[in-house]
Protein backbone atom coordinates (compact mmCIF):
# COMPACT_ATOMS: atom_id res chain seq x y z
CA UNK A 1 0.00 0.00 0.00
CA UNK A 2 1.30 3.45 -0.89
CA UNK A 3 0.90 5.95 1.95
CA UNK A 4 1.27 9.72 1.69
CA UNK A 5 3.26 11.30 4.53
CA UNK A 6 3.22 15.04 5.24
CA UNK A 7 6.50 16.63 6.34
CA UNK A 8 7.16 19.89 8.16
CA UNK A 9 10.03 22.05 9.41
CA UNK A 10 13.30 20.13 9.81
CA UNK A 11 11.78 16.90 8.44
CA UNK A 12 10.80 18.73 5.25
CA UNK A 13 14.23 20.34 5.08
CA UNK A 14 16.08 17.01 5.46
CA UNK A 15 13.86 15.12 3.02
CA UNK A 16 13.78 17.99 0.53
CA UNK A 17 10.03 17.59 0.02
CA UNK A 18 6.80 18.38 1.87
CA UNK A 19 5.17 15.07 1.00
CA UNK A 20 6.63 11.59 0.83
CA UNK A 21 5.16 8.49 -0.81
CA UNK A 22 6.00 5.39 1.19
CA UNK A 23 5.28 1.76 0.44
CA UNK A 24 4.03 0.05 3.60
CA UNK A 25 1.90 -3.10 3.92
CA UNK A 26 -1.22 -2.72 6.10
CA UNK A 27 -2.04 -3.36 8.86
CA UNK A 28 1.01 -1.56 10.16
CA UNK A 29 2.18 -0.31 13.53
CA UNK A 30 3.98 2.99 14.01
CA UNK A 31 7.26 1.03 14.14
CA UNK A 32 6.47 -0.52 10.74
CA UNK A 33 5.64 2.92 9.40
CA UNK A 34 8.90 4.37 10.72
CA UNK A 35 10.87 1.57 9.07
CA UNK A 36 9.09 2.10 5.76
CA UNK A 37 9.78 5.85 5.87
CA UNK A 38 13.48 5.33 6.58
CA UNK A 39 13.77 2.79 3.75
CA UNK A 40 12.32 5.37 1.35
CA UNK A 41 14.09 8.37 2.84
CA UNK A 42 17.31 7.60 4.78
CA UNK A 43 17.89 11.36 5.11
CA UNK A 44 15.36 11.30 7.97
CA UNK A 45 17.40 8.82 10.07
CA UNK A 46 18.67 11.40 12.57
CA UNK A 47 15.40 13.29 12.76
CA UNK A 48 12.64 10.68 12.92
CA UNK A 49 13.38 9.26 16.41
CA UNK A 50 12.71 12.75 17.86
CA UNK A 51 9.39 13.18 16.04
CA UNK A 52 5.83 12.18 16.79
CA UNK A 53 3.32 10.93 14.23
CA UNK A 54 -0.09 12.43 13.62
CA UNK A 55 -2.82 10.29 12.09
CA UNK A 56 -5.88 12.20 10.89
CA UNK A 57 -4.72 15.37 12.68
CA UNK A 58 -4.35 13.70 16.10
CA UNK A 59 -1.14 12.60 17.81
CA UNK A 60 -0.81 8.86 17.25
CA UNK A 61 -0.40 6.36 20.07
CA UNK A 62 0.72 2.73 19.84
CA UNK A 63 -2.98 1.82 19.52
CA UNK A 64 -3.74 4.19 16.64
CA UNK A 65 -4.75 2.27 13.53
CA UNK A 66 -3.32 3.26 10.18
CA UNK A 67 -5.74 2.94 7.26
CA UNK A 68 -5.10 3.31 3.56
CA UNK A 69 -6.86 6.68 3.56
CA UNK A 70 -5.33 7.98 6.80
CA UNK A 71 -3.76 11.43 6.73
CA UNK A 72 -0.29 10.82 8.12
CA UNK A 73 2.16 13.51 9.22
CA UNK A 74 5.55 13.59 10.87
CA UNK A 75 5.49 16.14 13.71
CA UNK A 76 8.94 17.38 14.76
CA UNK A 77 9.25 18.78 18.30
CA UNK A 78 7.25 21.98 18.56
CA UNK A 79 9.13 25.23 18.86
CA UNK A 80 9.14 25.18 22.63
CA UNK A 81 10.84 28.06 24.27
CA UNK A 82 12.39 28.40 27.69
CA UNK A 83 10.05 29.39 30.53
Amino acid sequence: MTLQIKLFAVAMQKAGTSELEVDCPLPATLVDLEQAILTTCPALTDVLPHCRFAIDDQFATAQTEIAADSTIAIIPPVSGGAL
Binding site: F8, H50, F59, I75, P76, V78, S79, G80
Partner: peptide
Protein backbone atom coordinates in the same frame (compact mmCIF):
# COMPACT_ATOMS: atom_id res chain seq x y z
CA UNK B 1 1.02 29.03 26.50
CA UNK B 2 3.08 26.23 28.10
CA UNK B 3 0.91 23.53 26.51
CA UNK B 4 0.67 25.32 23.17
CA UNK B 5 4.45 25.20 22.96
CA UNK B 6 4.43 21.41 23.40
CA UNK B 7 1.42 20.16 21.49
CA UNK B 8 0.41 22.59 18.75
CA UNK B 9 2.20 21.87 15.45
CA UNK B 10 3.62 25.32 14.75
CA UNK B 11 7.35 25.61 14.17
CA UNK B 12 9.78 28.49 13.97
CA UNK B 13 12.91 28.95 11.93
CA UNK B 14 15.61 31.26 13.28
CA UNK B 15 17.22 33.46 10.66
CA UNK B 16 20.41 34.20 12.61
CA UNK B 17 22.27 37.43 12.05
CA UNK B 18 25.33 35.45 10.90
CA UNK B 19 23.31 34.46 7.81
CA UNK B 20 22.52 30.87 8.83
CA UNK B 21 18.99 29.47 9.19
CA UNK B 22 17.84 26.85 11.66
CA UNK B 23 14.54 25.18 12.57
CA UNK B 24 14.04 25.24 16.32
CA UNK B 25 13.19 21.80 17.70
CA UNK B 26 13.74 21.32 21.44
CA UNK B 27 15.67 18.16 22.22
CA UNK B 28 17.01 17.95 18.68
Amino acid sequence: IDTLKEDVPIWKKENWSDGTHEWVHPGM
